[in-house]
């Protein structure tokens, strides 16, 4: 691989890191703006002025904000996310299991959604403007237009309550047999798939249609290739960059945007964990989760960028 590509990649990564730092400042500032402070949230109804003052002292809440920011950032860089204020547990340990669950769900949703979206997109292009194209687009758009909780409740109503094929709640735990685990996540994974499907499908369709106008596609058609081979061999490779972009965006959504789906299906992932701790004003946990989400989002975007660069022959073989 040649140096301009490496340079571009290095630039992207450096940009990503700077962005992440900026986000860490934003997250920190955001948690400072939340009404009430941790000491008050911990003591709740029973707070007296003396106990509040004591607890603030003990938690170091009296230091100026920038000192607390650098303390926190230093910890994060050394892998120490701190301890949760509400339960006293180590955040890194409790997040590990949760993150794994979220990734597990996102992985299976992606395994179904990505190939399905691309295949549907290709099919729609093949039969463009016909009834197949319209049916696919219509259904996909409809499923995206419904809010996630509505899709979730519909799935629960039919698959769990009426037909009782899948469980209504997706509680998974360590040591759960794989088959049971898959059965448990069937409904939330389906809900997520339906939510992200249309975006990827439409983008695939649009990107390929765009290249279908080019002269070389016409040439391919003229030399007698079947419609599918034209798309697969000539159109798709040239349309891959925008497709990768939208796939990565949706993958990121599968990880960071699942709060609603996790709550509906009672899935023990990062979303639920975050919600629990926001209501308790557990600032260190909220910061840690926020930062992890930001990191996932940024790194997936970097990967998308890099993949697009690598997929582009003009960048791969510079003159």
């Amino acid at each position: 691989m040649s140096s301009p590509i490496l340079k571009l990649i290095a630039q992207r990564i450096a940009l990503g890191i700077i962005l992440l730092l900026a986000i860490s400042v934003l997250i920190f500032a955001g948690t400072q703006i939340l009404p009430g402070d941790v000491a008050q949230a911990i003591l709740g109804q029973s707070a007296t002025p003396e106990s509040l003052a004591n607890l603030r002292e003990q938690l170091g809440l009296n230091d100026p904000a920038y000192i607390r920011y650098f303390h926190w950032l230093g910890g994060v860089l050394t892998g120490d996310l701190g301890t949760a204020m509400s339960s006293g547990q180590d955040i890194a340990t409790s997040i590990k299991g949760r993150l794994w669950n979220t990734l597990f769900l996102a992985f299976w949703a992606a395994i179904v959604a990505v190939p399905l979206a691309i295949a549907l997109g290709l099919t729609a292009v093949r039969y463009r403007n016909g009834w197949v194209d319209k049916l696919i687009s219509g259904l996909a758009l409809a499923s995206t237009s419904f809010p996630e909780f509505f899709i979730g409740y519909l799935l629960v109503y039919f698959f769990a309550v009426k037909w009782q094929i899948f469980p209504a709640i997706s509680t998974v735990y360590e040591g759960m047999p794989f088959g049971e685990r898959m059965q448990a996540i069937a409904l939330p994974a389906t809900a997520l798939t339906l939510v992200v499907l249309a975006h990827m499908m439409r983008m695939t369709r649009a990107a390929i249609l765009n290249v279908m106008q080019s002269a070389y596609v016409e040439t391919a058609e003229l030399k007698g290739l079947s419609a599918f081979s034209v798309i697969r061999k000539h159109a798709f490779p040239n349309a891959i960059a925008p497709i990768i972009n939208v796939v990565m965006l949706n993958l990121a959504y599968l990880i960071v945007g699942v709060v609603v789906v996790e709550v509906i299906f009672v899935y023990p992932g990062m979303g639920q964990y975050l919600v629990d701790h926001v209501t308790k004003r557990d600032v260190p946990v909220v910061q840690a989760v926020g930062l992890i989400f930001a990191a996932v989002y940024i790194s997936l975007n970097i990967i998308a960028d890099i993949a697009a660069i690598v997929a582009n022959p003009r960048l791969r073989h510079p003159k």
Binding site: V156, Y157, A160, V161, Q164, P167, A168, I169, I264, F265, V266
Partner: peptide, 10 residues
Amino acid sequence: ARTAALQGGQ
């Protein structure tokens, strides 16, 4: 979800 879990027998 709670009601659905009861109805679904979980």
